[in-house]
Design a protein around this nucleic acid. Structure first.
Length: 210
DNA sequence: GCGACAG
DNA sequence: ATCTTGTCGC
């Protein structure tokens, strides 16, 4: 498939995105992220208890990189690995927090939306840098529609970009992100997933000298 | 043609 | 994302 066809697929998936809360509970929140070494992708998923902030489950996978990084097409590089890690979890999270964007995307199909639809699971995006759209104050608009909220932690000067992916609204996504913003810049689920894959990476490099 | 667009 | 030392600040 060429870039043009992938663009079309994203537009089709975007049409299927449900941007209103569509779940009956949010007790377990998942976090997913990726790390790299040579031509491998390490994907990791964690599950955090919304009320106690405890880590209740985690799983990872290591796969060969099979797609380059192309702005706007990150999902085609990291979605399969991330979904593989999520499928290995023993405990299913009620909502998934993905490192990246959701509907705040050139074709309204960031990796959070992509994964949410593919796995039919509520998903939201947590981006670390500007992606797309008209910035007004601390929110971002596309076609006059609010698609992203900037969140600033007490410390950091740089915000985190929150956007809904699938089966969840922007406001609820922001509520959840705020709930897990204890101190640091990155919401807990994503932060733990990030530390998790970084840890797995170190263990692998330490074991397999190459 | 130019610019911009996560990780 | 990743390659990398020291260094400024709470």
């Amino acid at each position: 498939m060429n870039v043009k066809e992938l663009y079309e697929e994203q537009k089709e998936l975007a049409k299927q995105a449900i941007l209103v809360d569509s779940f009956d509970k949010m007790e377990l929140i998942g976090g997913v992220d990726c790390a790299y070494f040579e031509d491998n992708v390490i994907s990791g998923a964690v599950v955090i208890d919304y009320n106690t902030f405890e880590l209740v489950d985690k799983a990872y996978d290591v796969l060969k990189v099979d797609f380059p990084y192309i702005p706007g097409l990150l999902a085609y590089r990291e979605a399969v690995p991330m979904m593989a890690a999520v499928k290995k979890l023993k405990i299913r999270p009620d909502i998934l927090m993905v490192d990246g964007f959701g509907t705040n995307h050139p074709r309204r199909c960031g990796i959070a939306t992509y994964i949410g639809i593919k796995l039919d699971i509520p998903a939201m995006g947590v981006g670390k840098s500007y992606m797309y759209g008209k910035v007004e104050e601390d929110e971002i608009y596309q076609d006059g529609e609010k698609v992203c909220q900037l969140l600033y932690s007490r410390k950091s000067k740089r915000p985190v970009y929150i956007s809904p992916g699938h089966r969840i609204s922007l406001s609820t996504s922001v509520d959840i992100a705020r709930h897990f913003m204890d101190g640091g810049r990155i919401p807990l689920p994503v932060k733990l997933a990030d530390e998790y894959v970084a840890d797995i990476k170190q263990k692998i490099l330490k074991t397999v000298h190459t």
